[in-house]
Design a protein around this nucleic acid. Sequence first.
RNA 1: UCCUCAGUAGCUCAGUGGUAGAGCGGUCGACUGUUAAUCGAUUGGUCGCAGGUUCGAAUCCCGCCUGAGGAGCCA
Length: 461
Amino acid sequence: MTHRIADILKNGQPDSVITIQGWVRTKRDSKGFAFVEVNDGSSMAGLQVIVDESVPNYETLAQVTTGASIEISGVLVPSPGKGQRIELKAQSFHLYGTSDPETYPLQKKRHSFEFLRTIGHLRSRTNTLGAVMRVRNACATAIHQFFQERDFLWMHTPIITASDCEGAGELFNITTLDLTQVPLTTEKQVDYSQDFFGRPAYLTVSGQLEAEIMALSFKNVYTFGPTFRAENSNTSRHLAEFWMVEPEMAFCALDGNVELAEAFLKYVFQYVLDHCADDMEFFNKRIDSSVLETASNIIDSKFDRITYSEAIALLEKADRTFEYPVEWGIDLQSEHERYLAEEVFKKPLAVTNYPTQIKAFYMRLDDDEKTVAAMDVLAPKIGEIIGGSQREERLDILERRIKAHNLPIDDYWWYLDLRRYGSVPHSGFGLGFERLVQFMTGMANIRDVIPFPRTPLNADF
RNA sequence: UCCUCAGUAGCUCAGUGGUAGAGCGGUCGACUGUUAAUCGAUUGGUCGCAGGUUCGAAUCCCGCCUGAGGAGCCA
């Protein structure tokens, strides 16, 4: 039986006989003995192992270099050196796979994230990416735990969609047609009747509409899965393939939606602090010295709530000029969102009731019809982290709004049916999972918080 | 997609018209408690690609490719 290094570092007692398996991070040689630091991905810190001449096969230690895979058995002893409570005195070791130091790209020194992206198959062995992946895993666990504790059903909404009526962003077309010989109709259009689904098909850009179907059967549901946008956007906040969390609640108005969003963020941040303390300290020390403060700020402060109109009033009386001028009716720019979250409130806030013209057709029309029941949660440093709304549940108004947006109303037959048969007020929101991990860790680039980022011109690994 | 910047050794970078450089890494050696070990020696190049100007180009000009930051769009 082998031991997990994280458990040994935390609970390992002197004189215990243990076996570990992992990858060598560094080796420090001296005459007659060497220190080997081994990491198995279970924690930020590795276990320091002392191998001296008395160990069988000592001569093969020369091949134990950075990146090599190894199994070591020995006795735990208190460490006389600084930096670790205990260390492993090796009695035997087995070298599984060597790692040629001439060509192994990871060095002991710090690498740029840009370089690490070019070695996506090895970067997860670094301190930072290791910490990111553990935090990412904890976030995902926290999300499921949060919703499951509240009896939300996890719903697997489709990844392939045959209607482009979701209306958010550019879609990836999927097809089994021979692209070197595309069948054409008599009107010289692509003849999709010969394609796999007999019609154009795409990768999903949102599971919301299907989540609404499920909410109107099970009351509270959530989706958590991959989402695709074919936008040619090259920023530190966009991916072509990302994961999205979308809760949807029946018999729930906008207030309940804001309450859920607040409870959700607090829960996830607390969970990660509880389960990834070392990793979070690492981010605070090496990546962004404000992540711990931000986390406690999220957990401890009651989110403020203001309407869009109140937000505009605050921006208009701000003693500074914005690149984008402020007036009622504009969509809030990132500079506006950051001003509100970072300088006015200095904590997360929910902005509600945006102008009808700038929001999606499915958001519930307010009584004056000038605004809709939308909500965005704005956070310091990151801006919008959650976007959601109460959905329009009134059939006649929804039909009117679909027409006003010049959308093909026949495509929405099933969405309208939900308002025809047992319609109820319902609400939900969407959260970009990678942006949450970014927010949590302080990582500047979204490509470094997902194992294998897909962006324009980049689909390696 | 737009704007700005960048691309030189395995990595991080210096080098603004005249012999291709440094630190780190790697290799070899020394060292009985290291922690980014230390010390000594050594190794290492299609200067992104293609064209042009020039006696001479990493350096100046044109085009392209790739990356980063910002913007837009958004999650």
